[in-house]
């Protein structure tokens, strides 16, 4: 074990301060009793109370939740299917190009994705609202699901599926009763990732949302332009909590399955 030098300690403190100080301040000020956001006036949870009495915020939260659940579920189904075909479909023509294209939207500027989706919805005459946000979020989160699921699928032993077929399963039955249970941790963490991404998306949502369907990030953004209210601090704190829980459980689920797999493989090698 190397000694933990003061240099390491400083680097770590500085780095984490840079990352988390803004959020920490936000969280602290969400418990501020005064109206002025910049002056501390004693501990209070009254802004949380105010928040839950504000119908506009509650509506936005309800829209966000529904969009998140629907788009992440859809993205998980589509993303898993895409990953399965790319990893398992054998060598078909244009496979490399297609797997590259599947991951391209990750690095695509969101403004461009948003704009092109907006143009598409206008072209096909789809009114902007809940449906368009769900579609937009599905589009951009499914590549993340694909990445997570395909990284698990490449280490999946194909002879397990063959054994299932050999024992009388149809291909769909084999997928359902052998492949899916084994890759489930990756699928679940892909879903959580998609859900959190959908929850805090502002750019895409502002392109494709309609007047009746404002998501929380849009609501916060427009409220802040009229001046930062302590209510926003409270709301943001809640969102940080939800996102943190989502991300942490996604990585925990993945890590647990990886360590379990490593342990199993070691045991198998040892015996």
């Amino acid at each position: 074990m190397r000694r933990f030098s003061w240099f390491n300690a400083t680097s770590l403190t500085l780095g984490f301060a840079f990352l988390y100080l803004p959020m920490l301040i936000l969280i602290i000020y969400s418990f501020n009793g005064g109206r002025n956001v910049a002056i501390w006036a004693g501990f209070s949870t009254k802004w949380y109370g105010e928040l839950f009495r504000d119908q506009a915020f509650l509506d936005a939260a309800w829209v966000t939740l529904r969009v998140g659940l629907m788009s992440s579920t859809l993205a998980t189904i589509l993303g898993t299917m895409a990953a399965y075909v790319i990893v398992r479909g054998g060598r078909f023509k244009g496979r490399t190009v297609m797997s590259g294209m599947l991951y391209a939207p990750i690095v695509m500027p969101e403004v461009i994705t948003g704009l092109s989706l907006l143009l598409l919805f206008i072209a096909i005459g789809l009114d902007r609202g809940l449906v368009t946000i769900v579609l937009a979020h599905t589009t951009f989160t499914m590549c993340f699901v694909s990445v997570v699921v395909s990284s698990r699928l490449v280490t999946f032993d194909q002879s397990l599926e063959e054994a299932a077929l050999d024992l009388g399963c149809t291909p769909w039955d084999a997928f359902k009763s052998v492949t899916l249970p084994i890759i489930a941790p990756a699928v679940i963490s892909g879903w959580l990732l998609a859900f959190t991404l959908s929850l805090d998306d502002l750019v895409l949502a502002s392109f494709v949302s309609g007047p009746s369907s404002t998501t929380l990030p849009i609501k916060i953004f427009s409220a802040v332009r009229l001046g930062v209210s302590p209510k926003i601090n409270a709301l943001s704190t809640l969102m940080i909590a939800i996102v943190a829980i989502g991300v942490i459980s996604a990585s925990l689920i993945n890590k647990r399955s990886v360590t379990k797999r490593l342990k199993d493989e070691q045991e198998a090698a040892a015996s």
Binding site: D157, S159, A163, A164, L165, D166, I182, D264
Partner: peptide, 29 residues
């Protein structure tokens, strides 16, 4: 297709289903 053939194979790599118990592995087919 493989699932319609009156043939069963024991794999060189065993290919046991890791998420099922020994009992359920044998009962699978």
């Amino acid at each position: 297709p493989p699932n319609k053939r009156p043939v069963n194979m024991m794999f060189q790599s065993y290919a046991l289903f890791p998420h099922l118990s020994v009992w359920d592995n044998i009962a699978f087919g």
